[in-house]
C-alpha cells in the first residue's frame, strides 16, 4: 500500500546520509581548496610559450637562433624578435630582443610546432594576473628564458623526447663529421700513399732548385 508522504521521507533520508557522510567519508567532498591546494593539471596542458636554455647560463645556453619562423607563423602576431648583431654589424645566431605579449597570445602552440631548434615550448603557469593592463603582460627575453630542468619538470615525456631528438641529431652530426673526417683522412692517406708509391717508382729527377 502506498503511504502518502513516504517519498518525502525517503528523500530526506538520502539528504541526511549525504550530509552526515560528508563528515565521515573524505571522498564525498571533491572541492579543492584553492589557493591552498592547486589543481593537478594533465601533462599536456599549456598556457603561454617560454624559451628553453641548456646548462646553467641562460644567455649562453639559449637554444634560440633568431630564425624568426615563430614570429612569422604566429597567428595573432604576438612575438617580436630583433636579431643580435656583433660589434662589426654581422648578424649573430641569437636574439637581442624576444618579446611575447601574453595578453594577445592564444596558446595555439603553432610557434612550438614550427621551431626547428626545439627552443620555444609551452609553459603551464596560469597565475599571471597583474594590475597593470598592458605593461606587465608583455614578457621579455629574461622572463621567457627557463632552464631545461624546468622543462623536464613540467612536461617530462615531451622533454625526454626532445632531448632524445637533440641527442640523436648531435650523434648523427658527429657521425657525419666523423665519417667525413675519416673519409678525408682516408683520402689524404690514399693520396700520401699514392704519392709515396709514385716517388718510389719514378726515376730520380735531376736535382733542381725548383721544389714542388
Amino acid at each position: 500500500m502506498n503511504i502518502p508522504g513516504s517519498g518525502i521521507v525517503k528523500g530526506m533520508v538520502v539528504t541526511a546520509r549525504n550530509m552526515l557522510g560528508s563528515y565521515v567519508d573524505k571522498e564525498r567532498l571533491t572541492t579543492e581548496q584553492y589557493p591552498e591546494e592547486r589543481p593537478k593539471l594533465p601533462e599536456n596542458s599549456r598556457s603561454f610559450p617560454f624559451l628553453v636554455y641548456d646548462g646553467s647560463d641562460p644567455e649562453a645556453g639559449m637554444r634560440c637562433v633568431s630564425c624568426k619562423i615563430c614570429e612569422k607563423e604566429c597567428p595573432p602576431q604576438c612575438i617580436y624578435i630583433v636579431q643580435d648583431r656583433d660589434a662589426a654589424g654581422k648578424a649573430l645566431k641569437r636574439p637581442k630582443v624576444f618579446d611575447i605579449d601574453i595578453a594577445v597570445c592564444m596558446s595555439c602552440q603553432i610557434c612550438v610546432e614550427v621551431c626547428p631548434f626545439e627552443s620555444i615550448r609551452m609553459d603551464t603557469a596560469y597565475e599571471l594576473s597583474s594590475y597593470d593592463r598592458f605593461g606587465s603582460l608583455v614578457l621579455d627575453k629574461s622572463a621567457l628564458l627557463k632552464s631545461n630542468e624546468y622543462y623536464h619538470s613540467i612536461h617530462p615525456t615531451e622533454a625526454a623526447e626532445t632531448d632524445g631528438r637533440i641527442e640523436a641529431d648531435r650523434l648523427k652530426k658527429e657521425a657525419a663529421a666523423a665519417a667525413k673526417a675519416a673519409a678525408a683522412k682516408k683520402a689524404a692517406e690514399e693520396k700520401a700513399a699514392k704519392a709515396a708509391a709514385e716517388a718510389a717508382t719514378a726515376p730520380e729527377p735531376p736535382k733542381t732548385e725548383v721544389q714542388a
Binding site: 549525504n18 550530509m19 563528515y23 567532498l29 572541492t31 581548496q33
Partner: peptide, 13 residues
Amino acid sequence: KILARVQNRYGPN
C-alpha cells in the same frame, strides 16, 4: 554550510 554538506561540498569556510 548545511546545504553545502548535503550537496557534497564545503560551505563558506
